[in-house]
Simulated assay, not measured.
Amino acid sequence: MVFLVISVFYQEIIFKNNLPYFTDKNESLLNLLTIPMAVIPVIYIAFCFRALKKHKEMLPDFYSTLERINLNWLKYILLSLIVLFIIIVGTLSLSTRWNYFPLNSTSKIIGSIQGFYLLCIVFFSLRQSIIYNQNTGIKDSRKKKDEVIPVDERSKILSERLLDYMRIEKPYLDEELSLIKLSSLLNVSTNQLSQVINQNLNTTFYKFINSYRVEEVKQKLKNIEFDHYSILGIAFESGFNSKSTFNKIFKEETGMTPSQFKNYKS
């Protein structure tokens, strides 16, 4: 936009090595125009880090299984983009000011690197099927948390309906259960269900679902029909899919390790 506004005051713009130059060769003006071109990518990367941090903070409100959600690859891509940006700026400077590199070759190299980055983003995105196979409304969660909505009669009814459904249908046995899936099973919006869990039940979706899984494990540990199962096998039968996560959540809920609980009950 700055470039277009300033170009109005010039009769002609010539192109040298496919880059635009004003005909009066005003170096100070050219340097001024390069400043926003250099700063804007840095600002975008900073906002990406901020958005990634907020997204990770809101995951417990939408997923019952977090160990399969790994977003570190996004952080590494952003960090490598900073390095790539510095290299590109340096290469372009050498190409345009001192003709150190042929500009055509430089453009091909940069295009190839950008294509490689796009391939990496698509590849790792598809591996996160638990997220990208669902149309989530995570961006709405922050507003919902900032504004405490009064509990009305409808939310109380939905709360009771939710608890009954959890007790009878046991949807928590699905290791990939998410807020989207559960709201679809209950035929309510994700915002309504999230409000009930966060405000009526005063917990997050992650803790809510895993508390039921812990209770399921406790019941099966006391049931002689599951004596031939290992503790980890019972955990997997109850909706957990990670040993470390199971041990951590079980101890948080009961104050004992699974082995201590089994020995105590026996």
Score class of each variant (00 low, 15 high):
S80H: 04
I209K: 05
I197P: 07
L173N: 07
L94W: 00
K75A: 12
K181H: 12
D152C: 04
Y117K: 06
I180E: 14
R97A: 04
Q195R: 15
S189Q: 07
N198T: 11
L177M: 09
N202F: 08
R213H: 05
N135Q: 08
T91L: 10
E175S: 13
R161W: 06
S141H: 06
K207G: 02
K156C: 03
G111K: 04
L78G: 03
F124W: 09
E175W: 04
L84C: 01
L79C: 07
L173I: 15
K207D: 15
S95G: 10
F116D: 04
I121E: 11
E147I: 15
S155D: 03
L74T: 02
T91H: 00
L179Y: 09
T96K: 07
R142W: 12
K144S: 13
L201P: 03
S125Q: 14
M166N: 02
Y76V: 10
I197L: 02
D174T: 06
P171W: 01
L103V: 14
R167P: 00
N70D: 15
E215N: 14
L79S: 10
I87T: 05
R154E: 13
D152I: 02
K181I: 14
N99S: 13
F123H: 08
Q192S: 14
L193Y: 06
I110G: 03
D174W: 03
K170S: 12
N70Y: 05
L94Y: 03
S112A: 13
L126Y: 10
E160S: 15
K108W: 04
K207R: 15
L158M: 14
E215W: 00
S129N: 08
I138S: 02
L126S: 01
S178F: 10
Y165G: 08
V214E: 11
W73R: 09
K139A: 14
L126H: 04
V196G: 02
G115M: 12
